[in-house]
Amino acid sequence: MDFDFTEDQQSLRDAVRRWVDKDYDFARRHAIVKAGGFSQEAWDGLVGLGLTAMLVAEEHGGLGFGPVEAMVVMEELGRGIVMEPFAQAGLIAPTVLARASAEVQAAWLPKIAGGEAMVVLAHQERGARYDLAKCAARFADGKLSGKKSLVPAGDKADAFIVPALSDGRIALYLVERAAAGVSTRAYSLQDGSRAADVSFTDSPATLLVGPEQGLAVLELAVDVGIAALCAEGVGAMDQYTAITAEYLNTRKQFGVAIASFQALRHRIADVKMQLELARSMSYFATLKLGEAPAARRYALAQAKLQLSNSARFVGQQCTQLHGGIGVTDEYVGSHYFKRLTTMEMQFGDGLHQLGVVSAGMQETAGVFA
C-alpha cells in the first residue's frame, strides 16, 4: 500500500506548518492560555488558510477534501499544540451537516466554509461515561432542553450540534448560541484550552438528523473526532520527542551531553517506538473512516486505545528526561505533556476503549483462535 502523500497534500502540510511556526509560536500560545484559551485572531488565521472549507462540498463553497487532508492538517496543528477547536468546527460539524436537509446545508455549510459560523458538537453529559446512547436532553414541541458538558469553546461558538431524545430515540439538532434559553459557563481545561457547560431550556432547535439515523451519525461524528485526535496526537508527540532529543544533546553532566548515556538512549528509543505505533494507527483510523459502521467503530476504538497508551508513555518519559524543567509552566515541554494527558480523556479514555476492543475480540483472542 502506498502511504506517500500527494504534492497537494504536502503543499497543504507546508502551508499549515508555516502558519504554526510564524503565527502560533510558544510565546503566543502561552499568552492565549493566560487570556482564556481561545483567540479569535488565531481562529481567523485558520479560516484565512481555507481550513474550515476543507470538508465542505464544492457546491457549498468548500474544497471537497477528504480524511487524509484532514489528518495532514491535524498533525501540523498538533505540532503547535493549537487550542482553537478546528477539529470540532472544521471537521465534525461539516460531516454532520452534510447529512442534514438541503435547506439546512444551504443555510450553514457556506457559513462554515467561509468562517462566518463556528459550529461545535455538544454531546457529553454527566454520568454518560462515554456511552453515546445515554442521553438525558430532550426535544419536544419544537423546543430542546438539557445540559451538555465540556463543549469546546462553548461560549465562543455560534451554534451547537446537540443530541437529544425524540420519541425515545436520539436525534441531532442545531441550536444557536444566541437562541432563547441557552446559557454557557466557560472554564479552562488542564491543557489551557477553553470549554464550557451549556444549558438549554426550551430552546428553539433545527432538526439535522432524525431519530432513525441520529445515533449512527453521532457515532460517525465521534469517530471523525477520534481520527482527528489521533493525528493531532502524532504531531504533538513527534514535536515533543524532537524537543527532548535536542535537550538531551545540549544538556551536559560530567562534562558530556546526557544523550551519550546508554540508559537515556534506550528510553528515547522506546519513546520513538511508541510514537511510530501511534502514527501507524492514526493512518489506520483515517483510512477506516469510509468503512461500514461496525468495522469503522471498532477500528477507531483500536486507534484511540493506542493513542491513549502512546500519549501517556511519550508524555511521561519526555517530561522525566527533562528533569525539573519539564514541569515548569514557562517551558514548552510541560504544555505538550498537558495536551497529551488531556487527549486521553477525550472521545473515550483508554479504559473505555480497552473495553470496546476487548468486547470485539472475545471470539478471536488466544493462541488457538
Results as ranks from 00 to 15, higher is better:
residue 1 M to H: 08
residue 12 L to E: 06
residue 13 R to K: 11
residue 14 D to H: 08
residue 15 A to L: 11
residue 16 V to A: 02
residue 16 V to D: 02
residue 21 D to S: 10
residue 26 F to D: 12
residue 26 F to G: 10
residue 39 S to R: 04
residue 41 E to W: 02
residue 49 L to C: 07
residue 54 M to C: 15
residue 64 G to W: 12
residue 65 F to R: 05
residue 66 G to S: 15
residue 72 V to Y: 04
residue 77 L to K: 02
residue 80 G to E: 11
residue 81 I to H: 07
residue 85 P to D: 03
residue 87 A to G: 08
residue 89 A to I: 04
residue 96 V to T: 03
residue 99 R to E: 10
residue 101 S to I: 05
residue 101 S to G: 13
residue 102 A to N: 15
residue 109 L to A: 06
residue 111 K to S: 11
residue 113 A to L: 10
residue 122 A to F: 03
residue 122 A to I: 03
residue 126 R to G: 12
residue 127 G to S: 09
residue 128 A to M: 12
residue 132 L to N: 00
residue 134 K to I: 08
residue 142 G to D: 12
residue 144 L to V: 04
residue 146 G to F: 00
residue 149 S to C: 07
residue 153 A to F: 02
residue 156 K to Q: 13
residue 159 A to R: 00
residue 159 A to V: 02
residue 162 V to Q: 06
residue 162 V to F: 02
residue 170 I to L: 03
residue 172 L to G: 01
residue 172 L to S: 02
residue 173 Y to T: 10
residue 176 E to F: 00
residue 176 E to P: 00
residue 178 A to K: 14
residue 183 S to E: 11
residue 183 S to I: 00
residue 186 A to I: 00
residue 191 D to E: 08
residue 198 V to I: 04
residue 201 T to I: 02
residue 204 P to M: 06
residue 206 T to L: 09
residue 208 L to N: 06
residue 211 P to A: 11
residue 212 E to K: 14
residue 214 G to N: 09
residue 219 E to M: 06
residue 222 V to E: 04
residue 224 V to M: 07
residue 227 A to Y: 06
residue 231 A to G: 13
residue 232 E to D: 14
residue 235 G to Q: 02
residue 240 Y to S: 14
residue 241 T to C: 11
residue 242 A to M: 10
residue 247 Y to G: 09
residue 250 T to R: 15
residue 254 F to N: 13
residue 256 V to D: 04
residue 259 A to M: 08
residue 263 A to N: 12
residue 265 R to W: 03
residue 266 H to L: 15
residue 268 I to W: 03
residue 273 M to P: 00
residue 276 E to F: 14
residue 277 L to S: 08
residue 277 L to W: 12
residue 278 A to V: 01
residue 280 S to W: 05
residue 282 S to K: 08
residue 287 L to E: 13
residue 287 L to V: 01
residue 289 L to Q: 04
residue 291 E to G: 09
residue 295 A to Y: 02
residue 297 R to C: 14
residue 306 Q to E: 01
residue 308 S to T: 11
residue 320 Q to P: 06
residue 320 Q to T: 11
residue 321 L to M: 14
residue 325 I to M: 15
residue 326 G to H: 10
residue 327 V to L: 10
residue 329 D to P: 15
residue 336 Y to H: 08
residue 339 R to G: 05
residue 340 L to T: 01
residue 345 M to Q: 11
residue 348 G to C: 08
residue 349 D to A: 14
residue 350 G to S: 09
residue 351 L to C: 03
residue 354 L to F: 15
residue 354 L to S: 15
residue 364 T to R: 14
residue 364 T to A: 10
residue 366 G to K: 00
